[in-house]
Computed example of a mutant assay.
Amino acid sequence: MGMGWWRWLRWEAAAVLRAARSAVTGPGPERDAAVQSLKAAAAAALAWAATASWGAPLALMAPWTAVVLVESTVYRSVRSGLQQLVVVAAGTVIAAGAAMLTGNKMGAMVLALPITVLLGNYARFGRQGMYASTTALFVLAYGSYSLYDIGHRLLESVIGAAIGITVNALVFPPVHARSVRHMLYTLPRDSADLLHTIAEGLREAGDEGYTQEDAESWQDRARRLANAVTDLHTARGWDQESYRLNPGYRMRRRGRAAPPADWDETWDGISEHLKTLTRTLREAAPDEHDLAPPPSGALGLAADVLDAAGNVCEHDLHLLDEGPEEEREARRAADLDRAWEAHGRLKDSLSQLDGESSASLGGLVADMQRLLYALGPQLPLRSRAA
């Protein structure tokens, strides 16, 4: 158990170092996160300086509001700011009213907190709803409920919101186009790498076959690819939102336009077929008992199919940079043809089998056929020649 914790800590430390190195060496999600963190800290410091200097009764409200409003987009900062001002005002008034009715902090908490927690669960307030109850706690802890104090707290919240939104809008206003392009690169690159890895594993397996550990590793990577498709959908939403109310929109270099959303649907299908394929491989592993493993000769043919399919994915990766040039399209089509030709040979080998091995090989043949159709909606060479 101790060694497991140590490995986990080492992995986490390595991941943190990689993220820090990426933030320093080049643009990307890591640098964007670092910039937003520094902006939030600067906004909080400015809000504190603006309110503490004239003796605000609860100067904490301003930096607290400012730091949470340096959001991922300017539009989200404005929307969250309006939500938070309503929530803070409601929490302040409810807490002050409860304190005046009960005359003590404990009674006021018992009365105010259920109301503010319920208010915070109202869907229209989103993530900002939780601040209704925390604001009430701050008000009750400081113990001042006069109209003067309530007005100051609302003013401090307004100042903090204004500073947070202004910093986010004017200092490197966030735009998420890079996140979309990063995910667009991730899908074909990681799909190609997974397909080549499986092909290499099947070739090296020999007569003994691949191991269950290999198959589980392939399946885990295929699951992560499916998660990357979800991340791509999310990134596109962030990208569209990041241009709303963004004063830096026209000043940003925009680069080549990203492929349309149809690209996402294509890779959604490819990732699902890879999940199915790796599940079949896991179920047919020699040390599993779900399916009998395919013969080693058939695994070599399957490796040829997957290798060529991996090359097709690599061509899709390069097309993101260099556009649909005829030469690249021709090489992609040639690799897809090779994949279909190897698939035809694999299908022929299926007809020569009988017994339990034919079930696992038949599953692999069907999974690969669906994958190839997703990579290119064209018929196998023999069918096209006919």
Rank of each mutant, 00 (worst) to 15 (best):
S77H: 10
R153L: 07
G201Q: 07
S242D: 07
A228D: 15
Y148M: 02
D262Q: 11
G81C: 03
E12D: 13
S53F: 00
R236Q: 12
L184A: 08
L372K: 06
A108M: 10
W5I: 13
A49M: 00
W48L: 12
G209Y: 04
G248T: 14
E314F: 08
G2N: 10
L140A: 04
R331F: 07
T102H: 09
G126C: 05
Y131V: 14
L195P: 05
N104D: 15
F125S: 06
L137T: 14
R224L: 05
L381K: 03
L371W: 04
A95E: 01
P380W: 00
L245P: 01
R332L: 04
P259D: 05
T266G: 12
M106C: 00
M61V: 14
E204Q: 13
L364W: 03
D290M: 05
V110I: 15
P57D: 08
P380T: 09
D193H: 12
R279S: 15
W238Q: 08
D193Y: 09
A19R: 11
Y122N: 02
R382F: 10
D231L: 02
I150V: 15
L336R: 08
L85G: 08
E265M: 09
A386L: 08
A161T: 08
R224S: 11
I165P: 01
V305W: 01
A298Y: 05
G344F: 02
I198N: 06
A284K: 04
W5E: 12
A303C: 06
E322G: 11
Y249G: 07
P247C: 05
L336K: 04
P259S: 03
G81M: 00
A15W: 02
A42F: 12
R10K: 09
G344D: 14
H152V: 12
R253S: 13
A228L: 02
V93Q: 02
L371V: 15
A292T: 15
G143W: 08
A20T: 14
H343M: 06
W238N: 05
A98Q: 03
A99D: 12
A308E: 13
D335E: 13
V70K: 04
A285Q: 04
L375D: 02
A66I: 12
T51F: 00
R384C: 07
E325Y: 00
E314Y: 12
S72G: 08
D287C: 00
S22Y: 06
I270H: 01
R76F: 06
M106G: 08
E322V: 09
R21G: 12
R76K: 09
N227I: 11
V180D: 04
M3D: 13
L137Y: 04
G269L: 10
G97C: 08
S179G: 11
I163V: 14
V139K: 02
L17C: 13
L372A: 06
R79T: 15
